[in-house]
């Protein structure tokens, strides 16, 4: 197996190669890389691959890691049921 075939995002099965090529081609932001490849958009909410996506992006674009977190965190930061989000359990 080629190194570039390593699966980085398990939920959406996105490989290192796909992420590196996309980052190089579009010189994009972390958000754009996510939207183009779906890496980090699976049911784990990017909790496993977020760090790797940021690292791949910095390497491919040659940018330094910025002080603000590259890929924005959105609530809910843990998997929750629709019932919980809808307020069903509070009222």
């Amino acid at each position: 197996m080629k190194d570039s075939a390593i699966v980085i995002c398990r939920c959406e099965e996105v490989t290192l190669e796909e992420l590196t090529n996309t980052a190089k081609e579009y010189k994009c932001s972390a958000r754009e890389l996510k939207l183009r490849t779906r890496a980090g958009m699976g049911y784990c909410g990017g909790r496993t691959c977020r760090f790797a996506i940021d690292a791949i992006l910095m390497e491919a674009t040659g940018n330094q890691t910025p002080d603000q977190i590259p890929l924005k965190y959105q609530p809910p930061v843990r998997p929750v049921s629709f019932q919980t989000l809808g307020g069903g359990c509070h009222e």
């Binding site: 390593i6 398990r10 760090f51």
Partner: peptide
């Protein structure tokens, strides 16, 4: 922090 290795899934 993840350290990806081929076959790590």
């Amino acid at each position: 922090t993840p350290a990806p290795v081929p076959g790590w899934t």
